[in-house]
């Protein structure tokens, strides 16, 4: 009889305990939520509202005119397309470059690995404006590379400066540390023993990479790609300083539209379109994180 009575009492105590903790938890969450609401969600909502309305004779009216303009304007579309292309190329290059470095850093036992890691993370500490000017000095016309080529009796190279390859080179350099760190974190979950076990049953390096390592870090690579793409869409300094004038990437395009063209509604429309594209990749990221959580708990 006593055990039957004990259950509701215990359950009640548990419920009170959880209720007692709830205000503290809500308070802790309140500050960041308020900041996000006030400084991000509210202005974003205003912007979106602006792009969807026009001032008509009866006051504000709903209108898709701003978007109709953006998606019929060849110049805007070319800029959007360039941004997507640069982001795609950069992402592929970053993954292709950082994966071998990360593999080396993860599984090498030499002291050299420490220096290579420091070197790979170095761009993290260089402001992108310095990087931009350094790249102009080295890869620009008559820059260091040209000087060396001429000294070696070779023809000058076609400079990437002011072509889409300018920002691509700069952005890859700039985003390498972040990508590398994410991939390294993913590789930390691939135990040395699981690779040794594969070698033990006769697998060579490529087989191990394809059948053992890549399946284990697929989620990580997705996360890295989403992060990089999000960063690339909002990149400004490097495309502005290294990229072509037309077509231009969305960052410089938005700045020019609002400052030089003085068309805030069109600038906001560009921002909303960019944001919508980013949201798709953010969704990828969130889903991948949720899935890996599920796998860990199962």
């Amino acid at each position: 009889m006593s055990s039957v009575d004990a259950t509701p009492i215990g359950a009640g105590a548990k419920a009170r305990g959880a209720g007692g903790r709830r205000p503290i938890g809500l308070l802790l969450v309140a500050a960041p939520v308020a900041l996000v609401l006030g400084l991000i969600i509210w202005p974003v909502a205003l912007s979106v509202f602006d792009t969807l309305t026009v001032h008509g004779p009866q006051g504000l009216e709903f209108s898709l005119e701003a978007y109709r303009f953006f998606f019929t304007d060849g110049f805007s579309l070319r800029n959007l397309w360039l941004t997507i292309r640069v982001a795609a190329i950069c992402t592929v290059l970053l993954l292709v470059i950082s994966l071998p470095i990360a593999l080396y850093l993860r599984f090498s036992e030499t002291r050299l690995a420490g220096y290579i890691q420091a070197l790979a993370l170095f761009p993290l500490f260089v402001p992108s404006i310095l990087l931009a000017y350094a790249l102009i000095r080295t890869l620009g016309p008559n820059g260091t590379v040209d000087t060396l080529l001429v000294a070696a009796g070779l023809p000058k190279m076609p400079t990437p400066y002011l072509t889409p390859w300018g920002p691509i080179i700069g952005l890859v350099w700039d985003n390498l540390p972040l990508t590398l760190l994410i991939v390294l974190a993913g590789l930390a979950n691939v135990s040395r023993a699981s690779i040794e076990a594969a070698r033990d049953v006769g697998a060579g390096s490529l087989t191990i990479l394809w059948h053992i390592i890549l399946p284990r870090i697929r989620g990580t690579l997705l996360v890295a790609a989403s992060f990089v793409i999000l960063g690339l869409f909002s990149a400004f300094t490097l495309p502005y300083l290294l990229g072509p004038a037309a077509p231009e990437m969305m960052g410089p395009f938005m700045r020019r539209t609002i400052i030089e063209v003085d068309d805030p509604v069109q600038a906001r429309t560009q921002a909303v379109v960019t944001f919508a594209l980013c949201a798709v990749f953010a969704l990828f990221y969130v889903r991948s994180v949720a899935r890996s959580r599920r796998e860990q708990t199962s």
Binding site: S191, A193, S194, E196, A197, A198, I212, R216
Partner: peptide, 8 residues
């Protein structure tokens, strides 16, 4: 291996 080292 001590840690099983199975491929999860």
């Amino acid at each position: 291996f001590q840690s099983h080292a199975l491929w999860t």
